[in-house]
Design a protein around this nucleic acid. Structure first.
Lengths: 231, 231
DNA sequence: AGCGCAATTATGTGCAGACATAATCCTGCT
DNA sequence: AGCAGGATTATGTCTGCACATAATTGCGCT
C-alpha cells in the first residue's frame, strides 16, 4: 500500500498516525529531531515531510512551540478549468456539443467592466450547448476578445468547441473564477430542458494574458450538478 | 514591495518574470544551475523556489526535460469550513444567529446513508438562521451525532451557534464537501426572505472523526451569494 | 532507415552542519 | 506580584556535496 520511500515514506507514516488517532487533533507531535532519530534519517528529511503535511493543512508548525495537529484541517480543492469533453468522458458519457449562436456585438456592461474594456469594443459572442449521452449537460455563454486570440477566424467552432480550443491553444497568466447559483433564463431553460427559473449551478470565469482580456465565460450546468471534494 | 529574502525572493522574481511575459507560457525556463549562478545561491535554493511555483500550478517540472511554464495554470482554491460569524464580520457586517428549531429525530435516508449510520439511529436536528446586518445571510440545516459530540447537552445553542462551537471544539479527521445549486424550500424561503424555488447556492458538508460520523450540514446562502477565487 | 543501448542531462532527494528566527521559559530585579 | 531581558528551544533556511532517477540524445550496429 505505502510503496513510498524517502521523505514521502515519513509523510505517509505521519499521516497514518494522524488518521489512526495516535496523534490526536490539537496535540503536539514529537520534534523533528526525535522523529529523525526514530526514522533514522536527517532532520531535513523529517522537515520536508512535515512541511508537506503542514502545507496540506494537517499540521500547524511554529518555531519553538513545535508541531501541532490541526483540529479542523482546511484542505484545498483544485478548481480546474475543465475541458468539458474530458469531464463528460471521465464520467463515462459520450460527449457532443452544439454551437447555438455566433455573433459579433458589444457586450453587456457587466461583462465589459469585468474584463476592463472600453465601452464600445465589440467582442465575439458564442453560445454553446454541451451534451452528455445526448442529454444537456451545460450551457456555455462566452464573450471572446478577437484581438487576443489569433487564428480564431480560421476555426470551425461546430467541430471543436471554443472551450476545448482555448484550453489547448491559448495561454493565460491571470484569471478569476466565481461560483454561484442562478435562476435559469428562458434560453438556458430551453436548451437545458428545465423550467425557466430553475436553480442552476453556474461557474463564471475571466482570463487575461498579460493584462489583455481573453474571454469571459459562464457555464450553467443542468439541474442536479454537484462539485464534490474531500476536505 | 517584495521584502522577501532567501528562496522566497527567488520565487517572487520568477513569478514576476512569468507575469511580465519574460518567461512565456509553454516555454522552457533556465535550468536550476543557471538560475543559481544568476542569483548567487545554491541550486537547492532555486530548487525550493521552483518547486513551490510548480506546486502552485505555475510550472511543470520534469527530469532531464527541464522546467516549462504551464499554459493554463490550474490553481487551488481553499475551501474552508468557515465560522460564519467570522465570514460575516470579515465582510464588515454585524453578525447574529437565531436557533429556529431543535429536535431529536431519525434523519432522512439521504443523510443517514451519507453518514453511514444504521437505519433507526436518532440524531439531533438543528435549524439555524445566520444574519448579517439584520438581513438573512444563510440558512443552516444540521444533523448531529450526539454520541460523537460530548458536552453537547450542556451547550446553550441560542448563544453560541453549533457551527462555531463545532469548529472551535470538535475535531475531525475526514470530511467531504459538496457545492451545488438548489431551489429554496418553503421553509428556507420564509427564513431567507426569498420566493420558494429561488436559486440558492448550497454547501453540504459531512465530517467524521476516526470513522465516527460527527455531523451533516447544509448551508443555503441567501440569493446572490458568490464564491470567488483567483486562479 | 530502424533499432537498441549507452551517455548525457536536468531535476529529485539525501546528508551533515551551520546559522537565523521566533517564541517560550525562566531568572533576577524592582 | 509584575516586569524586563536573557537563555533556551524548535522550526526555518542555506550551503556544498553526493548520488538517484527519469527522460532525452545520440551513437553504433544491423
Amino acid at each position: 500500500m505505502t510503496a513510498a520511500t524517502g521523505w514521502q515514506a515519513i509523510r505517509d507514516a505521519a499521516l497514518a498516525r494522524l488518521r489512526s488517532g495516535r496523534w490526536a487533533p490539537g496535540t503536539l507531535i514529537p520534534t523533528e529531531a526525535e522523529l529523525a532519530a526514530e526514522f533514522g534519517c536527517a532532520r531535513a528529511t523529517v522537515n520536508r515531510a512535515l512541511r508537506d503535511l503542514a502545507a496540506a493543512g494537517y499540521l500547524d508548525r511554529r518555531r519553538k512551540s513545535g508541531t501541532r495537529v490541526v483540529p479542523h484541517p482546511v484542505r484545498k480543492a483544485t478548481l480546474t478549468i475543465p475541458v468539458i469533453r474530458k469531464e463528460v468522458e471521465g464520467l463515462g458519457g459520450t460527449y457532443a456539443h452544439v454551437l447555438i449562436s455566433r455573433a459579433t456585438a458589444v457586450p453587456p456592461t457587466a461583462v465589459r467592466s469585468a474584463l476592463g474594456l472600453p465601452a464600445d469594443r465589440p467582442l465575439l459572442h458564442l453560445c454553446t450547448l454541451h451534451r452528455a449521452d445526448g442529454a444537456a449537460y451545460a450551457h456555455e455563454d462566452r464573450w471572446l476578445n478577437p484581438e487576443a486570440v489569433p487564428g480564431l477566424d480560421r476555426l470551425d467552432l461546430t467541430v471543436t468547441s471554443a472551450n476545448e480550443w482555448l484550453v489547448g491553444q491559448v495561454p493565460y497568466t491571470d484569471g478569476r473564477l466565481s461560483l454561484s447559483a442562478a435562476a435559469a433564463s428562458p434560453e438556458e431553460a430551453r436548451h437545458l430542458g428545465c423550467a425557466p427559473g430553475a436553480a442552476l449551478f453556474t461557474v463564471e470565469r475571466i482570463t487575461w494574458l498579460q493584462r489583455r482580456p481573453i474571454t469571459w465565460v459562464r457555464l450553467s450546468y443542468a439541474p442536479g450538478h454537484r462539485l464534490t471534494t474531500d476536505i
